[in-house]
Design a protein around this nucleic acid. Structure first.
Lengths: 224, 224
DNA sequence: TCATCGTAACTTGGCGCCAAGCTGTTGTGT
DNA sequence: ACACAACAGCTTGGCGCCAAGTTACGATGA
């Protein structure tokens, strides 16, 4: 194993053992280089890796600081309940921002319109919701899109009242630069990608295909 | 956004668009530095990031090469079925290696014994199974441990025949150096961590607490 | 004409140097 | 005695230089 990898492990041990105070100065690159008898560049790479993972933040000229660990939100990955309802039921302060852009057009091939929303909890972005709405069922979706914050509310307004989803697929991916900006995260923060279809229980019509990108560091997922 | 981040995005676009041949030379650091008018060190960082994510591998003096993308295994995250049964049912060539070590002792605090197994598919390590076996139910587990490859078989041999689990919790973490060596992966490959308890249906005894670490790049997970 | 060896030109890898930012201490001026 | 400015010493950030490895081409010798 490389020196860098071993240093990362050792620093993680110390961090999880509580040896460093939150928001106080982490030992500098030079200090750690001296302590571990490693080149400063090796130490810097290890520290930058820990920054990438969200443990540290740095200010040029000042130093590096330990980030407070954010509390994980427990999310049930199951059932037809909307994300909004789940969060409200658990007492979280959820906010939704519509990421409408006039540039987005209907996908002619599969007749869907992509409507994206950014979800915040406690003023922090935690998920990107991408709904690929079935244009055949909702022909005016492109015009309606700028004002929508709840898809379920939109469906109810259009006469659909009971929903289910036919399973979901979960995978892990890294964020693109756009997603990094939206979610205010680093490029090595894994995102949980959850893909499913929302179906009307009565008519069995597919209303939308959904892709939700969750920051994996903000959630623990309960499975039934 | 930094130059490095934008370069990563652009190279990923090209990779997914199929612009590079598998196992053929990827453009060199100098070549890309010239093309994008960036310092070589910026290009190198971007390429090392892609290496970390598993897209590329490098040979000093020779060059960098695109790795073939491995097929994702679809795994159902549900039910009491064992991992072994699920993989065999899907036709995968699963192999299990017991990671027995005489150094591992019974945890006196919660009376469990940690038995770890490494899972291979097509000769590639894909998951680490850690079973924290209830010593009160299996007092001879420490002696039995070296020869166990199937926990369910072990339980059946001890008179337990029907199992369930009381939900599971899924989270994402990065591998430690030990886990990196076992799974033959880089330090930024996210691992899916699935924690659950295996319970005997008849007696309701907790047989084990399980923690499975899956390479997230090898699996897509189906939820019911 | 063919084979072998040496060198140059390519590749990636390891680590350092200089730049930019911040803070604390000391000296000078009012 | 206090306030302000300058400088030194600390911090992290950007990028380059030299080392190590591989390959291809040209020259020399048989």
């Amino acid at each position: 194993m490389s020196s860098e990898a071993l240093l990362i492990d050792e620093l993680l041990k110390r961090i999880t053992a509580g040896e460093y105070q939150l928001n106080e100065k982490f030992p500098s690159e030079n200090r750690l280089a001296e302590e571990f008898q490693l080149p400063r560049i090796t130490v810097r790479k290890a520290l930058q890796h820990l920054e990438g993972r969200g443990y540290l933040y740095s200010v040029r000229g000042k130093g590096r600081y330990l980030k407070p660990e954010s509390e994980s939100i427990h999310l049930h990955l199951s059932g037809g309940e909307s994300f909004t309802d789940k969060m409200l039921a658990s007492g979280y302060d959820l906010k939704t921002v519509n990421l409408f852009s006039p540039d987005i057009e209907i996908n002619q091939e599969n007749q869907t319109y992509m409507l994206a929303r950014l979800r915040y909890i406690n003023e922090e972005p935690i998920a990107i919701h991408q709904s690929y709405v079935n244009v055949e069922v909702f022909p005016t979706i492109q015009n309606d899109a700028p004002t929508i914050t709840s898809m379920f509310a939109y469906y109810r307004a259009h006469g659909f009242h009971h929903f289910t989803n036919n399973g979901a697929v979960l995978s892990v991916q890294f964020p693109s630069t756009d997603e990094q900006e939206l979610l205010k995260c680093n490029n090595i923060l894994p995102l949980i990608c959850l893909e499913s279809q929302t179906v009307c229980e009565e008519t069995k019509k597919i209303l939308e295909r959904t892709c939700i990108l969750y920051r994996s560091d903000k959630f623990k997922y309960r499975l039934r």
